[in-house]
Design a protein around this nucleic acid. Structure first.
Length: 491
RNA sequence: CGGGGUGUAGCGUAGCCCGGUAUCGCGCUUGGUUUGGGACCAAGAGGUCGUAGGUUCGAAUCCUGCCACCCCGACCA
């Protein structure tokens, strides 16, 4: 039924890279760990952005833009934050190059050394809180809810297309509130936005939860996350939303006068999703023929491929296609008529499969004669024929069906890969043979978490929200525990 | 940063062990026939063999250094 036959049996990393490169989402670059997002990949990202941006605005956020370069001293203001990011920052030390005449090379001008080095933002908390200090004086200035679309640079040791590139695109929201409750509510609201987006647009089932202390964002009091499962059984953190407490407010001295005219530190949240989501999409849905994109965010939702032997036939197909195309577009469907005369139908079929186009309509002389169209959906094998009459409505319907089927399919896989385990031997076996999430008791200590990580490479992905409380013994230490947490190997 | 691997035409590769001036496929160009699952025939174009040096009459091949990329680990969205 499903085309996902050997996707996980092959070399997974190779399969993943092939999908991205042959699917024309991205390319490698001469810069270590960076990537070029190609037009098709960028169109996909733009569709994702558009949906998220609308949701942010609906929930009262505004967009703004802050600088790429941050004075080094800013990073230093929040102790844990430095700790977390210092190891992976690109640093600007000079502002000029000069042409060395004698050696005929362009070199850094030693005369142009910056007094204070600048770092290329790995995240923007510090530069944003520097502004918030100026903007927030009174409770009337709160809440302040700002989102930024931009790029950040993290000099990761090991990179992987989309999942961990040294430069990536993302959105980062930064909010300030008068009360702790309100900031926490904001943090949770955004988590819901992320989960809704992942499940209903990307067809990617996620588990909402909170991170353990050791997996928490550097500088956060609490980190909420959505965790997804990939086809090779590894987990992917798909988005995070942090409750920052008053940490950044204190570090940057952001106080406001409350209604009683007393000075208080503001409460904060920050949250983000990145182009990593594209990687998650590829790994969660792709098969051996290429990408499989969910209709709601696919750059091309429907492609029409003409099949003809002569000009006369082509013209009659053109006529039909023009009508469908305008009807589809009127109905809000992103449709393409692939009438490229330099490639043949079989080529086009394969091409659009690689690119994950959800629905393909093929029309040839036989179809014209029978008043029907050959329809094939990317997420399932096989072809059907639809009558030309009422075609657009049926195609729209099919797109919705594909969207929900893709989600259900991924959810079934995910649910089958959550295994409750009560002893460490089984834990290791399940991890090795089956993969996926393991639901197990944990004694709540960082030491145990660390030991398990060292022994198995599995980390605690999250403590699910609304987790049922249940007495038990820690899988590793045997100490008492009152709830299960989710372990997995992760990207 | 540690371990492994790979660099040969736009892409994928053979040749390397055992030294004699580079193979094949895809793509590209031109012409023709084709077009319901990556067409076929014919003719063509395209190369500082990653880079620097060494050995040699002669190096893609042997030796040394360097660089880049991929994979695995540590780190992370």
């Amino acid at each position: 039924m499903n085309k996902q036959i050997t996707a996980r049996s092959k070399d997974y990393a190779q399969w993943y890279n092939d999908l991205i490169i042959k699917g024309e989402l991205a390319d490698y670059t001469p810069v270590r760990g960076a990537m070029v997002i190609r037009p098709y990949g960028y169109a996909l990202w733009e569709n994702m952005k558009e949906v998220l941006d609308k949701k942010f605005k609906e929930t009262g956020h505004q967009n703004a833009y802050f600088p790429l370069l941050i004075p080094k001293s800013f990073l230093n203001k929040e102790a844990e934050h430095v700790e977390g990011f210092a190891k992976e920052c690109a640093v600007v030390t000079h502002y000029r190059l000069k042409n060395s005449v004698e050696r005929n090379v362009l070199e850094v001008d030693p005369e142009a050394k910056l007094e204070e080095e600048l770092i290329v933002r790995p995240t923007s908390e510090t530069i944003i809180w520097n502004s918030y200090k100026k903007w927030i004086k009174s409770y009337r200035d709160l809440p302040l809810k700002i989102n930024q679309w931009g790029n950040v640079v993290r000099w990761e040791m090991r990179t992987r297309l989309f999942l961990r590139t040294s430069e990536f695109l993302w959105q980062e929201g930064h909010t300030a509130h008068a009360t702790s409750e309100e900031a926490i509510k904001e943090t949770q609201q955004i988590l819901d936005v992320y989960a809704d987006f992942a499940e209903n647009y990307m067809a990617l089932p996620v588990i909402k939860g909170v991170k353990t202390a050791s997996e928490r964002f550097a500088g956060a009091v609490n980190t909420y996350c959505i965790e997804a499962l990939m086809q090779d059984g590894k987990a992917l953190q798909a988005g995070t939303s942090h409750f920052l407490g008053q940490n950044f407010a204190k570090a940057f001295g952001v106080q406001f006068a409350n209604k009683e005219n007393k000075q208080e530190y503001v409460w904060a949240s920050s949250w983000g999703v990145s182009t990593r989501l594209v990687g998650g999409l590829v790994m969660a849905h792709g098969d051996d023929n290429g990408l499989v994109l969910p209709p709601k965010i696919a750059p091309i939702q429907v492609v029409i491929v003409p099949i003809y032997r002569n000009e006369e036939q082509k013209e009659s197909i053109d006529k039909k296609a023009d009508v469908w195309l305008s009807e589809l577009r009127k109905a809000g469907v992103r449709a393409k008529y692939d009438d490229d005369e330099t490639t043949r139908p079989g080529w086009k079929f394969a091409e659009h499969e690689k690119k994950g186009v959800p629905v393909r309509l093929a029309v040839g002389p036989r179809d014209i004669e029978n008043e029907q169209v050959e329809v094939s959906r990317r997420d399932k094998e096989g072809k059907e024929r639809y009558p030309m009459d009422g075609l657009v409505a049926r195609v729209q319907n099919l797109l919705e069906t594909i969207q929900t089927d893709m989600f259900e399919n991924a959810k079934t896989f995910r649910d089958e890969h959550i295994t409750a385990v009560d002893d460490f031997d089984t834990f290791k076996k399940v991890l090795e043979k089956k993969g996926g999430f393991i639901s197990a008791h944990w004694d709540g200590t960082a030491e145990t978490e660390q030991k398990i990580k060292e022994l198995t490479k599995a980390t605690i992905r999250c403590i699910p929200l609304n987790n049922p409380q249940e007495e038990g013994e820690c899988i590793f230490s045997g100490r008492p525990s009152k709830e299960r947490v989710l372990f997995a190997r992760a990207y």
